[in-house]
C-alpha cells in the first residue's frame, strides 16, 4: 500500500524537523495534498492513526489535510480547466497539449510543536 510508505516517510521527516528545532512532542500535523497526487486520504489517515501510537514524538497527534485543486493549462488555447473533470484533454479546444499547473502536491505544510 502506497500510503503506508508515505506515512513512514512523513514521520521520518518529522523526526528530522523536531531535532533541528529542538521539539520533543508534536501536537498536530497539517499536510497539503493535491487532488491528483494519487494518495487515498482515508487510507492515509488510517495509516497515520496506526503509526502515531507507535511513536513518542507524534503520539495522539491529529493529522489535518488541506486539499489543493488540480488545474491543467492548455498550451493550444491558453485556458485552464479542472483536471479531475477533464483529464489531459482540453474541454475548450480538444487539444492534448496540456500540462498540470497544480494538484500533484504532497507536502508537510506545518506542525504544532508542544
Amino acid at each position: 500500500m502506497h500510503e503506508l510508505g508515505i506515512v513512514k516517510h512523513v514521520i521520518r521527516t518529522l523526526h528530522d524537523v523536531a531535532e533541528e528545532n529542538g521539539v520533543s512532542r508534536i501536537g498536530s500535523v497539517t499536510l497539503e495534498v493535491g487532488e491528483v497526487s494519487g494518495v487515498v486520504l482515508e487510507q492515509l489517515v488510517d495509516c497515520w492513526n496506526y503509526f502515531r501510537e507507535k511513536d513518542d514524538l507524534v503520539r495522539g497527534a491529529p493529522l489535518f489535510v488541506e486539499t489543493i485543486e488540480a488545474v491543467t493549462f492548455c498550451t493550444a488555447c491558453e485556458k485552464t480547466y479542472g483536471t479531475v473533470a477533464h483529464g489531459k484533454t482540453c474541454p475548450f479546444c480538444g487539444s492534448g497539449e496540456t500540462y498540470l499547473l497544480t494538484g500533484s502536491e504532497f507536502s508537510i505544510k506545518q506542525i504544532e510543536a508542544e
Binding site: 516517510h9 521527516t13 504532497f106 508537510i108 508542544e114
Partner: peptide
C-alpha cells in the same frame, strides 16, 4: 503551542 511552517515535500528525508 508553537506553529512551525515547513512546506517540505514528504520525500525530503528520502532524497
Amino acid at each position: 503551542m508553537k506553529v512551525i511552517e515547513l512546506k517540505m515535500t514528504v520525500t525530503d528525508s528520502n532524497d
